[in-house]
Amino acid sequence: TETREFDNEEEARKEAERLRRKGQDVQIRKKGNRWELRRT
Rank of each mutant, 00 (worst) to 15 (best):
T1P: 13
T1H: 13
T1G: 12
T3N: 09
T3I: 14
T3K: 09
T3L: 12
T3S: 11
R4W: 15
R4I: 14
E5I: 14
E5N: 07
E5F: 15
E5G: 06
F6N: 00
F6W: 04
D7C: 13
D7W: 07
D7P: 06
D7I: 07
N8V: 05
E9F: 15
E10F: 11
E10D: 11
E11Y: 03
E11P: 02
E11I: 04
A12G: 02
A12Y: 01
R13Q: 12
R13E: 10
R13T: 10
R13V: 12
R13P: 00
K14P: 00
K14N: 10
K14S: 10
K14Y: 10
E15G: 02
E15V: 08
E15H: 07
A16Q: 07
E17F: 06
E17M: 12
R18H: 08
R18D: 06
R18C: 14
R18G: 05
L19P: 00
L19F: 05
R20E: 03
R20H: 05
R20Y: 05
R21C: 15
R21M: 12
K22L: 15
G23N: 03
G23T: 01
G23L: 02
Q24A: 10
Q24Y: 15
D25T: 13
D25Y: 14
D25N: 13
D25F: 14
D25I: 14
V26Y: 10
V26R: 01
Q27T: 13
Q27A: 08
Q27R: 08
I28M: 06
I28C: 07
I28W: 03
I28S: 01
I28P: 02
R29F: 14
K30W: 04
K30A: 06
K30Q: 08
K30D: 01
K31T: 08
K31V: 14
G32Q: 03
N33Y: 04
N33L: 05
N33C: 10
R34K: 12
R34V: 09
R34W: 06
W35N: 01
E36R: 02
E36H: 03
E36G: 02
E36Y: 11
L37P: 04
L37I: 11
L37M: 04
R38D: 09
R38F: 15
R39Y: 15
R39L: 15
R39F: 15
R39V: 15
T40I: 14
